[in-house]
């Protein structure tokens, strides 16, 4: 199933290039309804005196710890609010999201 993908939330990747990068891509259907998202995992992150190896921010920007943290697989594949897979790169995550939808 092909979705229309657009940039979601952005942040500064901290690479010194001072440009905002998408940390989320949102996949919508033809009616414009959000069907899937791919979200970049942050980490390691030190917050409230705890070290999180991998975290994601929820809709309210609260830190959600992810376990297990898989080195390299920095993108979460979220279909209809459920994490269904992970991928090392955003484009691969998008393909996995579409594949997951097609499989349903």
């Amino acid at each position: 199933m092909r979705l229309r993908w657009t940039r979601g939330r952005t942040d500064d990747p901290g690479d010194g290039a001072s440009r905002l990068r998408a940390r989320e891509w949102v996949g919508c259907d033809d009616a414009g309804e959000t069907i899937a998202r791919v979200v970049r995992v942050h980490g390691p992150l030190l917050t409230n005196w705890r070290l999180f190896h991998a975290v994601a921010l929820d809709e309210e920007a609260r830190v959600v710890e992810l376990r297990p943290s898989l080195p390299g697989d920095r993108w979460l594949v979220v279909v209809k609010d459920r994490v269904v897979d992970r991928a090392p790169l955003a484009m691969a995550a998008v393909r996995r999201a579409e594949a997951a939808l097609a499989a349903n």
């Binding site: 229309r4 952005t10 790169l89 484009m91």
Partner: peptide, 16 residues
Amino acid sequence: LDTALSVDDAAMEEYF
């Protein structure tokens, strides 16, 4: 494509 376009959101949008 997955690797190279990951450095540029506009290029990814073009791809999508």
